[in-house]
Simulated scan of single mutants.
Amino acid sequence: MSEDILQDDFSKQSIPHFLIIGAQKCGTTSLYNYLIQHPQIIPALSKEVHFFDIYFEKGMDWYRNQFPSLESKRWITGEASPYYLFHPHAPKRIHQFIPKIKLIVLLRNPVDRAYSHYHHQVRMGTEPLSFNEAIKKEESRLKPERIEILKNENYHSPIYQNCSYLARGRYVEQLKNWMNFFSMEQFLIIRSEDFYSNPTLIFHRVLDFLGVQMLELKQYTKHNFGDYPKLNSQFRNELLTYFEPYNRELYDYLGVDFGWDK
């Protein structure tokens, strides 16, 4: 079946108008929950559909059924699967079926993101190692899994998804992969720290990007956050040093300094 036929067929159905593609532990759950309070934004059956990373074998009919039937052209729908940004096959797959999609990306200081991600996996019962040990073993854990994912597109690796603490924070590598398929105009890239400090301003930026009416929420409740000990300052500085060249490349690539030097 040709790509044009697939796209025409899919366009007859309710399709996502936007995707929040990541990054994990950067505010995606909070943002999605704010968006679906808007009367013009109708939610998917679940926030994280994970079709283009984990469930691609289920096929497009299954994906269509994750979204509501829209009775008005004023309504839009979307989902938020933060593994999409990191998954090597997701951008190609998404471009094949919804090439005009609007893409929202939240990026957080990669040290804070990694530490939050680690504690999330500990709470989920999937990470038995200490943070230091997990960081030391990350490359040996991920390398064979990535090789298998690239070799077999239908291979799903919980290790690659769950234990990628440093790799997911090398944002520039991921964005370059995405921008091989999509134009810069299709992205809204948000600094998570700005979202946390001024959710109203960022929420309105997102509404403007999506082309829906402005809305003021009564409150901006944080979702999917947890309490955990503060990261050791020496180890934090080591991680800041590790990420510095990747952050600098990101700033140069996007033309924006995110200020993640502390």
Rank of each mutant, 00 (worst) to 15 (best):
E3M: 07
D9F: 15
Q13L: 04
P16G: 02
H17R: 03
H17L: 03
I20N: 09
I21L: 08
G22Q: 04
Q24T: 07
K25Q: 09
T28A: 09
S30V: 02
N33F: 12
I41R: 07
A44Y: 03
L45F: 13
V49S: 13
H50R: 10
H50D: 13
F56E: 04
G59S: 14
E71R: 10
T77I: 08
T77H: 02
A80G: 15
P82E: 08
P82C: 14
H87Q: 13
H87W: 12
P88A: 15
H89C: 15
Q96M: 07
V105D: 00
L107P: 13
R108Y: 10
D112P: 00
A114W: 01
Y115Q: 00
T126Q: 05
E133C: 15
K136P: 05
K137Q: 11
R141V: 03
E145M: 01
E148D: 04
E148R: 06
N152P: 00
S157M: 02
Y160E: 09
Q161E: 10
Q161I: 13
N162S: 08
Y165R: 01
Y165L: 04
Y165T: 01
L166Y: 01
L166M: 08
G169K: 01
G169W: 01
L175F: 15
N177W: 11
N180L: 08
F182C: 02
F182T: 02
S183F: 02
M184R: 00
E193H: 10
F195N: 13
Y196Q: 12
T200C: 14
T200F: 11
V206M: 02
L207N: 10
G211W: 10
E216Y: 04
K218S: 02
K218Q: 11
K218A: 00
Y220F: 09
H223Y: 15
N224L: 12
D227L: 12
P229E: 10
S233C: 15
N237M: 03
Y242L: 11
Y246D: 12
R248G: 07
V256K: 13
V256G: 08
V256P: 09
F258H: 03
D261W: 07
K262Y: 03
